[in-house]
Computed example of a mutant assay.
Amino acid sequence: MIYVLFIVAIIATVFAAIKISAYADGISRLSGMGSLVIGTFLLAGATSLPEVTTSVSAIYLENPDLAVGNMIGSNLFNLLILAVFDVVYRQRKILTSIDQQQKYTATFGFIMMAIVPIALFFTIEIPFLNVGMDTLLIIALYLLSLWVMRRKRPREKGSNEGTVEEKYTLKEAVIGFFAAAITILLAGTLLTYAGDQIAVISGLGSSFVGSFLIATTTSLPEAMSVFIAFKLNNSNLAAASIIGSNLFNMLILCLCDFLYGESILQSASTSHMATSVLLTVNSAILCYAIFSRNGRNVYLGPSIAIIFFYIVAAVWMFIL
């Protein structure tokens, strides 16, 4: 029965993600805000809702490994999604065609990811807040990224703005967006419960289940949002949703730190060290791909490297 609930939650998540991506694409055009802002913050936040419910529920289940593993695994899988689509749609050269403003969010993402393995090894706990210094640094970086995005006005490239017939009004797009977001939130709660039970039944352990089984399923909205964005010929929205989701997931980790009552990364298993380092490496590769633009001899090199390191992380957690 638990596996049936798990599958039902996955189906509901995929369906809602398909709708929410189309609505986000419409909002980016109808509102005039652009794909970069909508993708990085609005769509990224909505598609990360399963991670919110999964990680917060894991805290109340007294399972910090599930919460930390879900965040690391989700971010790894998000980068894998972008890399795979970059290979599949290699003619478009996604990482060289997206707006250059995404180099700022990618850089903030890399710095945030680099904090995690350091904090797993050592952190300074803030006594009156009962959280690690790493949490405050991540929150400060996220807020700084918001400020930078407001200052840097993106220039839309490869957008289909003005070339498509709108299917709905801005109001209808906003209402549909939030309806789909609520569906994703509810499905994420069900995924958390089912995943925790599967971890117990299968004996695979919370670290592996959190990092790969649940992380992969809760990243389905990101996968579908990227797929739909490409179908809508909006690669800028696709990349922004992935990079933004990784930033938002780090904010979720901070929320979990506050709820847990002590440094969550210090309480988590050291088995996350290797996967968090590989996540940092993949984040650095993404930054390199965006910054280097046309300066690479082999265009697909970075994406292939990201896929390779994801496989290494998955094998490492499975055999651990």
Score class of each variant (00 low, 15 high):
262 E>Y: 08
208 F>A: 10
125 E>K: 06
197 Q>D: 11
230 F>D: 07
222 E>K: 06
143 L>F: 14
108 F>A: 09
140 A>Q: 04
152 K>H: 04
195 G>A: 01
9 A>S: 15
73 G>S: 07
206 S>Y: 03
203 G>F: 08
36 L>G: 09
253 L>T: 05
44 A>V: 09
29 R>F: 05
111 I>G: 00
269 S>V: 08
67 A>E: 00
128 F>Y: 09
246 N>P: 05
143 L>S: 02
51 E>A: 06
318 F>Q: 03
210 G>W: 02
53 T>Q: 04
40 T>Y: 04
57 S>D: 01
91 Q>N: 15
237 L>C: 05
113 M>F: 14
245 S>V: 07
279 L>A: 10
5 L>W: 11
109 G>Y: 03
84 V>I: 14
121 F>G: 07
183 T>W: 04
47 T>C: 08
55 S>I: 13
100 Q>T: 12
309 F>Q: 00
72 I>N: 01
162 G>H: 06
11 I>T: 11
225 S>A: 15
30 L>I: 00
19 K>E: 02
280 T>Q: 01
257 D>N: 10
8 V>I: 14
155 R>V: 15
209 V>S: 07
38 I>E: 00
183 T>M: 14
37 V>R: 09
205 G>T: 06
254 C>A: 15
88 V>N: 13
205 G>M: 00
119 A>F: 05
22 A>H: 09
249 N>G: 02
236 N>R: 04
134 D>S: 11
20 I>W: 07
277 V>A: 12
188 G>A: 07
124 I>M: 03
253 L>H: 00
295 G>M: 00
174 V>E: 02
36 L>V: 15
45 G>P: 02
313 A>C: 05
288 Y>G: 11
269 S>M: 09
254 C>G: 04
102 Q>C: 00
37 V>W: 13
194 A>Y: 11
161 E>I: 09
187 A>W: 10
248 F>M: 02
207 S>Y: 06
239 A>V: 15
297 N>L: 11
92 R>C: 02
7 I>S: 11
248 F>A: 04
221 P>D: 09
271 S>A: 13
129 L>Q: 10
125 E>N: 12
96 T>P: 01
285 I>N: 04
220 L>H: 00
298 V>R: 13
115 I>D: 07
265 L>E: 02
122 F>W: 12
204 L>I: 10
101 Q>V: 15
160 N>S: 14
210 G>M: 08
104 Y>C: 02
275 T>C: 11
180 A>W: 03
258 F>D: 03
304 I>G: 00
276 S>L: 08
249 N>I: 11
56 V>A: 06
133 M>F: 13
34 G>H: 03
288 Y>P: 10
64 P>L: 02
215 A>N: 01
149 M>S: 12
235 S>L: 10
154 P>H: 08
241 S>D: 06
296 R>P: 01
88 V>D: 11
222 E>C: 00
205 G>L: 05
148 V>E: 03
127 P>L: 11
268 A>D: 05
54 T>H: 01
51 E>Y: 13
66 L>H: 00
286 L>R: 12
247 L>M: 13
100 Q>K: 15
227 F>T: 15
51 E>H: 01
282 N>L: 01
121 F>M: 06
113 M>D: 10
116 V>R: 05
216 T>L: 14
317 M>V: 14
59 I>K: 06
62 E>W: 04
193 Y>T: 06
166 E>T: 09
160 N>Q: 15
3 Y>I: 09
127 P>C: 08
293 R>D: 14
6 F>R: 07
226 V>Q: 03
